[in-house]
Design a binder for these strands. Structure first.
Lengths: 131, 131
DNA sequence: CTTACTGTATTAGGTATCTAGTACACGTTG
DNA sequence: CAACGTGTACTAGATACCTAATACAGTAAG
């Protein structure tokens, strides 16, 4: 599926939420496909089931996942993507954080851009491999 | 000086630490220059003095700042920049995080890169303005 | 010396997060 | 029917971080 980064200050449930969104965006999870059960994914990620449940719950509220009670959780038939405004806002926020750390460690813009391109391709490839 | 982002999951002391490193990297803080006192910066950032003290302490241990006890804190005569290895590692880590969120919100690589270039210039300009 | 300002240290409390354990309602499968 | 696997809910504990309030040692300026 994907990995959890313990050194990432972001809450684990948010990392899971973003990970699922990422796999859907890349097509590794198709609409209607079933996602691992709360307990299975928790065991896989070495994480508490409650933490996974929280992520699934948020994704369900957001229309990304659909729950069939007693049966399982599935990718929604029409998974909701963030609106253009929200998307741009989130992206710009992340970009500022990235640029800030790049400058803080003394990197030039070119290096920062190269590193992003490389990382982007790597993440895509990693997900394709497990699709 | 710079701003604290309460929505950023990163601890405040780390944001301060990075902010100081950023200003030094951009030349807004020259070697030997004095940095605001713990209490002043805390008041400016609307933050507890202990939090600023923690950031200053880490920067001092890292050789970025130098303390003259009872007098104040100054930028070290030869501010230490992260080694190439550490720099690349930190940058790559940040790049992965950024690329991951970019993909999660459904952005293409080109958009992600554009946003980084824009953010980089904006951060530089912002610091130059206050130098 | 007295006052005021430095950085530093200590203690306490509040909040958010993660973990752990248990329980319940629902659906499928035997 | 019984057994099992779903998501969900609840309580309790541990940890990390931020805040708050003091106190102390060193330096500079009056």
């Amino acid at each position: 599926m994907f990995a959890i980064n313990p050194t990432d200050p972001a809450p684990i449930w948010r990392q899971i939420e973003e990970g699922v969104r990422r796999m859907i965006a890349l097509g590794a999870l198709q609409p209607g496909a079933s996602v691992p059960s709360v307990r299975d994914l928790a065991k896989d990620l070495r994480v508490n089931p409650n933490t996974v449940a929280r992520a699934y719950q948020r994704l369900t509220e957001g229309g990304v996942l659909a729950v069939k009670r007693g049966e399982g959780t599935y990718v929604a038939d029409v998974p909701v993507q963030p609106r253009k405004n929200e998307r741009n806002e989130a992206l710009r926020d992340a970009a500022i954080r990235y640029a800030s750390t790049a400058i803080a460690v003394g990197s030039e813009l070119e290096d920062a851009v190269d590193e992003v391109e490389s990382a982007y391709e790597r993440v895509v490839r990693e997900h394709r491999r497990k699709a």
